[in-house]
Design a protein around this nucleic acid. Structure first.
Lengths: 267, 267
DNA sequence: CTTGTAGTGTTATCATACAACCCTGATTAA
DNA sequence: TTAATCAGGGTTGTATGATAACACTACAAG
């Protein structure tokens, strides 16, 4: 039987929680550019953690360019709110809700990419897709070669959109998703899956080849729904991502973190 | 006259130096994927710093996805070594085709964000959107206040998707687009435009409020089509554009760590 | 008005201790 | 023999306190 082990999802480090919390304060505007953060000591007591943890969190935010600090003065929110680089926090992805969000974003990009590809694909694109499919057929399901061909197929679809940024973003997001899946490592393989997955890809390919925009979207959507199941997400696109945002305007919102901390300490 | 003094470039933090040094070991292959790093204590003594500094460095590398650590075992070099940051070359955006591509990507994200928002928005979201709209009504078209409210509206829509990555990506893309538009500076203002633009936003808002998914998508699509016209793009959805984007990696350069550490130790 | 100086608050770093956890190997029970 | 249990050492995660380096302010002295 298959053992549906819940990935021992040990909560991320405290410093991660603190960093996320501060990040959120900034993102939601409660900390504006130029504002000075509370002192490390103050943050430590508010969060109920040691100053050391706060420092690790700040070190991360600093490296991400979100804040900037100077000895003897304090830490400040970076003025330029237009980061020139986009990063995805690796640890945050270990959390199920984050993973689901990224998976959803990937889905949106893939589906629309399929639509664009159906409109704009060239003969060369189709040839490349066919080659990738052949690679998948030849390799055993789940093998390195199989994964490479899988990735290659999606890459060629992205390329067929004739939108370079689409490709860039898609590859970026997909890589993060793939990493996270591999890290979890809770995927079972079977011959059935190989057949099913291959079929999904072939339908996408056929629709794109025929210039069938809606068909390509639908096929890609099916593929992603299947992929979601295969990695243990009970189909996305429902409302389970929707955390009831009962956020009341409060000066600072750390109560959840505190609770998390308590829970860790208690358990 | 003005003195033009060079900003006193105080050396970076020790944790930064340590992180860079470890990073370089990885980049240059002396630490291969899967390898275990020396213990924090060992690193501390070799670098001549406290374990605390080493931990801050490791926290950064961990958040960048370069290494991965587990309590009781140790820290290891991450398997995947692909880029963890996404950058958009500013100069490339000056080219019309690149700009069009990014605009198209933004459109895809915005339209799907509107759809998700229509499904998941909370009362608080609606209130925030309404506030942003009020801000737009109050400010003169094209003014700083107007732009801020405009941005704020789109941000609240992104937030209402309950998908944090959606917001991150959208803000990132929109900022690049906005910069590019401002740089071009070829936009004319008129009262008509104010009225039209405001109307577009209000239709988006109404659809999201009513939970009308298709309506929200359509309204957002209209809005973007209008925006495209206003910035001089003859409606998107054309088929010309290709071009590989320039990928930029950021090498890090420092041979100073050891020296700096020595200096500290010696002095 | 300028300069020196003490005082206070903050970050940067160090040092130490303990808790939580993994791994290994010995010991014990079946 | 085999499996389970337990003890010990090693490692990371967190807490705590202390010290050094630096920025800012106020005030006194010139």
């Amino acid at each position: 039987m298959t053992l549906k082990l819940d990935k021992v999802n040990r909560g991320p480090h405290l410093s991660t929680l603190v960093a996320s919390s501060i990040s959120r304060e900034i993102a939601q505007g409660r900390l504006k550019p130029g504002d000075q953060l509370p002192t490390e000591q103050a943050l430590a007591t508010t969060f109920g953690v040691s100053r050391n943890v706060v420092r690790e969190a700040i070190a991360r935010l600093r490296s991400e360019g979100r804040i900037w600090s100077q000895q003897g003065r304090g830490a400040f929110v970076t003025d330029a709110n237009n980061p020139t680089v986009l990063t995805i926090d690796y640890e945050a992805l270990q959390r199920a809700d984050s993973f689901r969000s990224l998976f959803e974003l990937r889905g949106i990009l893939e589906v629309q990419a399929a639509a664009l590809a159906a409109r704009r694909r060239s003969e060369a694109d189709l040839a490349a897709m066919g080659e990738a499919l052949a690679g998948m057929r030849a390799a055993p399901y789940g093998s390195v070669a199989w994964l490479r061909s899988d990735l290659e197929f999606h890459r060629t679809v992205a390329e067929a959109t004739r939108n370079s940024y689409m490709g860039q973003f898609l590859v970026f997001v997909s890589e993060r998703v793939r990493e996270s899946i591999l890290a979890a490592g809770n995927q079972q393989k079977s011959d059935d899956m190989a057949r099913i997955t291959l079929g999904e890809h072939e339908r996408i390919f056929a629709a794109i080849r025929n210039g069938d925009v809606e068909g390509a979207q639908a096929a890609m959507r099916d593929h992603l729904a299947g992929a979601a199941l295969r990695v243990g997400l009970h189909d996305g696109e429902a409302a389970e991502v929707a955390v009831p945002a009962k956020e009341v305007a409060s000066p600072v919102r750390h109560s959840r973190l505190r609770k998390a901390v308590r829970a860790r300490a208690g358990g």
